[in-house]
């Protein structure tokens, strides 16, 4: 039973980490139907910025929750700037061209950003400080859940709810839904499409940056390559949940996390990714639009 609980918690942690990144994928996809391959790189840049910021601020004497929050804020701002720029440079000129053109330019962007960080910073793994302060009441259950895991979990839930509220109830959210449904109609109705898409990238990048900070705290080491692996898993999770759906991204990520974790525990960790991918294929065969995705009737 303990073993089961252990695996459950590890699946939950893994799932919530994937979810943090998957939310950004699914948002961008929902609005402009683009698999943003550079999203994983934005997350990686968020983590690097956070590392640099924490060292500068740390030497200025900041610590505790204050340090964590200010580091997260700086990382969010920088990642948002990067996300915005990437959209301006690599995707905006391609609006209206074939679906695959922006995909390829996204891949180019991803290669560029990876190498940029490798050259500007380091090809090695760097130590990421554990920025999450001690949470005393967790001590008795530390065997199951660490403080970083708790913060990640809470943050994932918080951002999912926050995003849903944002999309449902704010003006920008409404504009986003309009653009997602029909760009031409939205433009006719007076929605500034460029602004909406930029906003989507900015929000997605902020989420990625916060993910970068939290995952950095949990892994305690980062390299220029972390975006690729996490990005691929998160993208898989987003599709599994029904790409474009915000709760879907979280559900998909959790299923992927649990599948990996239980497969590692009860099958073999050598084969856990195989098991996870097989589950994914089976789910998609029976629910071709993803778990939470809506079936689309195709118009002729």
């Amino acid at each position: 039973m303990n073993f089961f609980l252990d695996l459950f918690m590890s699946g939950l942690t893994k799932g919530s980490i994937y979810a943090l990144i998957a939310l950004g994928y699914t948002m961008v996809y929902g609005i402009i139907a683009l698999i943003n391959f550079a999203h994983g790189e934005i997350y990686m840049i968020g983590a690097f910025t956070a590392l640099l910021a924490s060292m500068v601020l740390g030497s200025l004497g900041l610590s505790g929750w204050g340090l964590l929050l200010s580091v997260a804020a700086i990382a969010a701002v920088y990642s948002a700037m990067y996300g915005w720029t990437v959209e301006r440079v690599a995707y905006k000129p391609l609006r209206g061209s074939s679906r695959l053109a922006p995909l390829i330019s996204a891949i180019g962007m991803s290669i560029f950003l990876q190498n940029y960080v490798q050259l500007a910073q380091s090809p090695n793994f760097l130590v990421f400080p554990d920025l999450v302060p001690q949470i005393d009441f967790l001590a008795p259950v530390a065997r199951y859940i660490s403080r970083t895991q708790l913060v990640i979990l809470l943050f994932t839930v918080f951002s999912m709810v926050g995003l849903t509220v944002f999309i449902k109830f704010t003006k920008m959210g409404m504009a986003m839904r309009a653009v997602a449904q029909d760009q031409t109609m939205a433009r006719l109705a007076g929605v500034n499409i460029d602004k909406v898409i930029s906003a989507t990238f900015v929000i997605g990048s902020i989420l990625a940056a916060l993910g970068g900070v939290l995952i950095g705290c949990s892994m305690r080491q980062i390299s220029f390559y972390i975006g690729f692996i996490a990005g691929m898993k998160a993208f898989t999770a987003a599709v599994l949940g029904g790409i474009g759906s915000i709760p879907g991204a979280v559900v998909g990520a959790l299923i992927l996390g649990f599948a990996e974790s239980f497969a590692a525990g009860y099958v073999s960790s050598s084969y856990k990714d195989v098991v996870a991918f097989i589950i994914l294929i089976i789910i998609l065969i029976f629910r071709p639009e993803g778990i939470m995705g809506q079936a689309q009737t195709q118009k002729v």
């Binding site: 252990d6 590890s10 980490i17 590692a264 073999s268 960790s269 856990k272």
Partner: peptide
Amino acid sequence: FQGITSGEVSYDDVVSLLRQ
């Protein structure tokens, strides 16, 4: 005797296996 995936975001499941 198992292989684990390099570069993963979390190794908690492997930790559970070791404990088990």
